[in-house]
Design a binder for these strands. Structure first.
Length: 406
DNA sequence: CTGCCTTTGAAGATT
DNA sequence: AATCTTCAAAGGCAG
């Protein structure tokens, strides 16, 4: 198992202590991964083919997991690394010069006996990113390349609306509201980001097939820009938290990142039937990484299909050094902490059967049942050599065109 | 219009 | 305890 499950009530804070890195072989693997540049395309190609083959094998899932375990086992190694990181921090804060972008977040561990969320005790000046970015992911200076350039500037009243009305709102307001001087508290220079994450890697993980149109510097500079952005918008609940989205099934994704800005805060439909907001899961390390790097990959690879991009990002993720990954694990950990503080009663289960709606109506339950059945069937199909996915076709057709240009 | 694809990781559910 | 399942994001694509 790649992950260490909860590990008790203090998992959020304890995960990193439990991490034990995979040892030396892993290091070699890392090195090899960094040789990615040379082999990546071939790897990706072959892996794409292999995957489709594997997926037809009876133990596709198991194989896949096995591969993953081989490849990463990172949570383990990561945790070990975090130990190191923590020791380096040794004051509770990130001092690591390699990770200067982080210090703007200081959260007490909610699981520590005396931890409190009082603003006074938190030097948190998390500036909420606009564009409906995950509020928690504001911890990470995501690239918003893919967002409309017109959206960065939010109405000033948006900040005013960030008055969280939850019972912890006062305590937590410091996390999400943008204090008058809040911007200045954010260090625009994210030095760990200002350096290419993959200096040795060409875009898409291949050899420079596509000269990047985007100067990396500019793309990174946008991170800091995003940091300067105000809150993304208001949820009907009054919680200025893009993680809370109207329960509209799939659409929630889009609303999560776009509609908050594109559309007015009030939608006629929603007015008619106000629904319980959906609080999204906090993003894990890889999701944070994806969110940050997606735009870059899109720009570099001229790919738009998320499935393909995610594959690339998955490979890049594995190519990251432990330290680099550790940053994201730590960010994710902080996000979980923050999420928990914001929504103490929230559980991942809330978004399970309810079909993503706070209103777990009968239809949603039924849909969920269907979904579950479909998934099972799909797995059976894949086990028995079911039909190939459209994306498999894409991989074979598009991948060579894109990936072969080494 | 809806769901799938694809990735990793967290966490709930199940065995 | 171990394993399985679902959901987070994303956007093109197929039905």
């Amino acid at each position: 198992m790649p992950q260490l499950s909860s590990g008790g009530g203090d998992d959020l804070g304890a995960n990193d202590e439990m991490i034990s890195f995979k040892d030396e072989g892993e290091q070699e693997e890392k090195i090899q991964e960094n040789a990615f540049t040379e082999r990546d395309l071939a790897d990706l190609k072959s892996s794409l083919v292999n995957e489709s083959e594997i997926n037809q094998s009876p133990n596709a899932a198991a194989v896949r997991r096995g591969q993953q375990g081989e490849q990463r086992g990172f949570p383990d190694k990561h945790r070990e690394h975090l130990d190191v990181v923590s020791k380096q921090q040794d004051g509770g804060m990130y001092k690591s010069p390699g990770y200067p972008g982080y210090p703007f977040l200081m959260l007490p561990d909610p699981y520590l006996p005396n931890s409190s969320v009082s603003p006074s005790s938190n030097k948190v000046s998390v500036v909420q990113q606009s564009h409906g970015m995950h509020p928690l992911t504001s911890l990470l200076p995501y690239s918003n390349d893919h967002f409309s350039p017109s959206s960065p500037h939010l109405p000033t009243d948006m900040s005013q609306k960030t008055g969280v009305h939850r019972h912890q709102s006062q305590d937590l307001s410091g996390y999400y509201s943008l204090p008058p001087g809040g911007v200045s508290q954010i260090t625009p220079s994210m030095s760990w980001q200002s350096q290419p994450v993959y200096p040795a890697l060409s875009p898409c993980g291949f050899r420079q097939p596509y000269p990047s149109n985007l100067p990396s510097a500019s793309s990174y500079s946008r991170f800091s820009h995003s940091l300067m952005l105000g809150p993304s918008g208001m949820h009907p609940t009054g919680i200025p938290h893009p993680a809370i989205v109207p329960p509209t099934g799939k659409q929630e994704h889009e609303q999560y990142d776009r509609s908050m800005y594109v559309k007015p805060q009030v939608e006629p439909k929603r007015e008619k039937e106000p629904k319980k907001p959906v609080i999204k899961k906090p993003l894990n390390a890889f999701m944070l990484y994806m969110k940050e790097m997606r735009a870059k990959v899109i720009a570099e690879c001229t790919l738009k299909e998320s499935a393909a991009i995610n594959q690339i990002l998955g490979r890049r993720w594995h190519a990251l050094t432990r330290e680099e990954q550790a940053k994201y694990y730590e960010l994710a950990r902080k996000e979980r902490q923050l999420h928990m503080q914001l929504y103490p009663t929230w559980s991942a289960r809330d978004n399970y059967e309810a079909g993503l709606s706070g209103v777990a109506g009968e239809k949603n339950k039924a849909d969920w049942g269907k979904k579950k059945r479909r998934k099972r069937e799909k797995q059976q199909d894949s086990n028995t050599g079911g039909k190939r996915s459209a994306f498999a076709t894409f991989k074979e057709e598009a991948a060579p065109a894109q990936l072969l240009q080494i």
